[in-house]
Design a protein around this nucleic acid. Sequence first.
DNA 1: CGCAGCACCTTTTTT
DNA 2: AGGTGCTGCG
Length: 715
Amino acid sequence: MSIEVALARLNEAQQQAVTTAAKQTLVLAGAGSGKTRVLVHRIAWCLSEGLASPTGVLGVTFTNKAAAEMRGRIEVLLGRPLGGMWVGTFHGIAHRLLRTHWREAHLPEQFQIMDAEDQQKVLKRVIRGLNLDNEQWPAKEAQWFINARKDEGQRPDQVDDGADPAIRTMIDIYRAYEEACARAGLVDFGELLLRGYELWRDNDDLLRRYRERFFHVLVDEFQDTNALQYKWLKLLVADQANFFVVGDDDQSIYSWRGAQVENMQRFRRDYPQHELIKLEQNYRSTATILDAANALIANNTGRLGKKLWTDGERGEAIRLYTAYNDVEEARYCVDRIRRFHAEGDRYADSAVLYRTSAQSRVMEDALRQADVPYRVHGGFKFYERAEIKDALAYLRLAMFRDADPAFERVINLPVRGIGNRTVDEIRLVARREKISLWAAAYRLIEHHELAARAANMVLAFLHLIDTLAARIAGLALDGVLETVIETSDLVAHYRKEKGDRGLDRIDNLNELVAAARDFEPDENETELPLVAAFLSHAALEAGEGQAGEFEDCVPLMTLHAAKGLEFTNVFMVGLEEGLFPHQRSSTDPGQLEEERRLCYVGLTRARRRLTLSHAESRRLHGADFYPQASRFLREVPRQLLEEVRVGGAALSGGARLIEETSGSGLFLGQRVMHRTFGEGIVLHLEGRGAHTRVQVNFEGGVKWLVVAYAGLAAL
DNA sequence: CGCAGCACCTTTTTT
DNA sequence: AGGTGCTGCG
């Protein structure tokens, strides 16, 4: 397709963004306004106008998925491969830089990427090594602290301790952790970015080379950038490159992991000559849904300001469902999903979104009961599974003996008689001598400092890894993994596990061999030996969860996971105070606004039908709660809503069943009035006739009453 | 050294 | 409620 034809299909604001002559551009792109489209067309336009060559383009996103989509769409639009263009995630690009310039970055050539789990284990070891109490200094908190500092671009020496001894200790842990990582050639996710930044900052020649190369820098989801990422971009862009960023301040939902919406304001200040373009026309949702979203988000302060509109139809009213409890809420959603399915929608067109992942369980139960296929998104990723990480740890160790987390992981797996005492001794020597665990193990044996039995076991383990390394040399990648699995004897180990769990694990190991067979390094990894590329890929891209991706099933996910997706029918469940907005966010106004943005993200996922629901009683952590309806429901204009309550004749199993047993004329979820307690909602019914007791949620609290004496009036 | 039982905690999650 | 991590025992 010629660029003219492609351009003609864009609306005016989109065209303006794509063809802008401004050196810096901030595109404020509302939900469903075609932001990826603009980004992709912008690149194509620059190339076709001769403003850029493919090698001069750097496109940055946050997730592998977004990067893959961007690459795919650029190729389709151009009708040819990317040809030297760099399109990837912040981490992927930093990784590529560090692999190329490992010397300048002061890293070993074989440096290994550590995921969050490895990081926590290393930290635990470091904390113990500092003789600090594990209770008082949990690895998790140290991890949080260190990652946050790295997100801000700070090394231990740059952190302000505020004369706080607790922070001072955290800094000590940070410093010791850095030493441990350096010794073992380990790089965590935050470190990739920080090193990448320092690499450019401290190597003038290198920075100049990249500045000369990248003349067009484009960033997606700019509102999600953290302080370090923005610093890194600014360093590269300086005043020579075209800087084109796309974002939506109303969809900033990741401040809790370091994202700074403020970067959008900063961009405006840092580049006063920039052009600001708003994309407000929405191509996704009905006018009703957009009205609701606009009204909701208008309650936030300090927005850049943006109002979505559509020239499409008004569409159906938004369904508001008040369930009497979480189980019944789920049942209602499933009923409706089945109805939509009967009317011709696919299951995959109806998504259920919730605030916390714990909420998926009730939904899953209801779907399973109704025999509706579903898929829970998020959660366990392929390369995060224990068995996969076990096998890869053997491979890591064979490739790179100093990889401490890999060493710790498999030294006694399968069980080979190397106990905690022995491992502790190895750890101690490693710490004292500032060497890797592998080297420490060797030293202990050479100096005969281990009991004869332990020494034999450890030596056997070291030999096993050496043997493995020798065996895999020269093999194809899938052969390498087959050999790893065989030599490690992991299959026999899992077979001993009771239940089907072990069999699942063995299946996954086979899948790992298959993944290796199909593995093709992406552009960031082509210069690496294949095995090393595979290991990096496994750490950097955890992969999708379970198989069966192509089956038609109902997607279940958290609101966070839903960002960037769209569905014909959206069910947002659990709209209750304390849950959404979440308890821990409801006191701080800033956090409350982020919850509201999360709600906004949810609403704007829906194309045609939107169902909002809340329950009057919910089981949480094993106890019953009686939450109020979410304030967000009140922020949606009433005239857009169609309210549905339990007890109507059309309603499902639960209500009917209870009515039959009570015979009192009351039903669950019914609104009732009591002389002294006021208005309330029926939560439970017990017994028959004169003995019927009823549990009612009044404003003042939950009460059990005998129907015959309570004098309840139905509302 | 391995297993069993108990205490603990519990927002969101990508790389 | 349910899963995880640690301790204490056999």
